[in-house]
């Protein structure tokens, strides 16, 4: 781990939420300490929360890239936990090699309820740490939640902890907050190759796998994600072969049998949804998508 020092740069803070927009003045009043760290500009991004694969992913990438064109040190995105998980993956895939640090952090709701404002896990500490990080980190997209810096593609909810926090599901962290911010010396791996674009398919349908899966498929769906909760209940191969759009089966548990179907248990849920939408925007070829899912663009394959 390498200790880093503070300097004073400009940081743009984007608040992505379905809450009412807040002003720069309101934010400064709620968290005046930010003024010690950087000159900040505030941008509100209203999000309607129709997840997954909302049409706003594309416009969010466009917004981030437009803001990054300004001469600033870094970007901070404040959102709630779920939105931070989706949007950080959207930016990770939609902008594989960012030119500045893009720090996602959580707790936007605290600004409105005024609770947890002075606790380390609340929005106040998160935002101060995120702004600091945005002035100093390498150009990469990371999530900062509580004391941890996490690669978006590895981030998920901590099932063992009652507190609502994010963890790295493979237990590998980019850095930590501890009387300062320290980084692991490793840089997130980025493999640029096909596809290299910032588009996302919006017509993805998520279906909980069951005996009536075939009956609920939407005619508008351009891609299907079957969620398989029980490994022993498999969809018939003949049914899968009859599908007219690319599909993937998400199974959060271990595979019990070998199969030729694209079953994914090596990506987090949020990473899978975003990556699938990103691949679908480039092709509707099932083989290319299956291979693309296995390709570690960001080192996102777990257990490898």
């Amino acid at each position: 781990m390498v200790n880093i020092v503070t300097n004073n740069k400009s940081v743009t803070i984007i608040i992505a939420s379905s809450w009412p927009a807040i002003t720069q003045n309101q934010l400064t009043q709620a968290i005046p300490e930010i003024s010690l760290l950087a000159k900040t500009k505030l941008v509100n991004f209203s999000y309607d929360h129709k997840l997954p694969a909302a049409p706003q992913w594309q416009s969010f990438v466009d917004l981030i890239r437009a803001e990054a064109a300004d001469p600033i040190g870094g970007l901070v995105v404040l959102a709630d936990l779920t939105l931070a998980l989706y949007l950080s993956n959207v930016i990770s895939f939609g902008w594989l090699q960012p030119t500045l640090p893009i720090i996602f952090t959580t707790g936007v709701e605290d600004l409105f309820f005024k609770k947890k404002l002075i606790k380390a896990g609340g929005v106040k500490a998160n935002l101060i740490n995120a702004v600091q990080l945005a002035t100093l980190a390498k150009p990469q997209t990371v999530i900062l939640d509580g004391f941890h810096l996490i690669a978006p593609s590895k981030a998920g909810f901590d099932q063992r902890n009652e507190t609502n926090t994010l963890v790295s599901l493979d237990n590998q962290y980019i850095g930590k907050v501890d009387f300062g911010i320290s980084f692991s010396e490793e840089t997130l791996p980025v493999q640029v190759g096909w596809p290299h674009h910032n588009l996302f398919e919006t017509q993805i349908q998520v279906i909980n796998q069951g005996p009536f899966a075939a009956e609920v498929i939407s005619a508008q769906a351009k891609g299907l994600i079957f969620v398989r909760h029980e490994p022993q209940v498999a969809l018939a191969e003949s049914f899968l072969a009859s599908l007219e759009v690319p599909y993937v089966i998400f199974q959060p548990t271990l595979l019990l049998e070998k199969t030729s179907t694209p079953i994914v248990n090596y990506l987090t849920w949020h990473c899978l949804v975003v990556k699938f939408a990103w691949l679908l925007a480039a092709t509707d070829n099932q083989t290319l998508i299956t291979n693309g899912l296995l390709n570690p663009y960001l080192g996102e394959i777990m257990g490898s």
Partner: peptide
């Protein structure tokens, strides 16, 4: 005298009163 290296710590400490 290196205020630059302490600004973050001041902000973090004051935010927690």
């Amino acid at each position: 005298a290196e205020a630059a290296s302490a600004g973050y710590l001041v902000a973090a400490a004051l935010s927690q009163k």
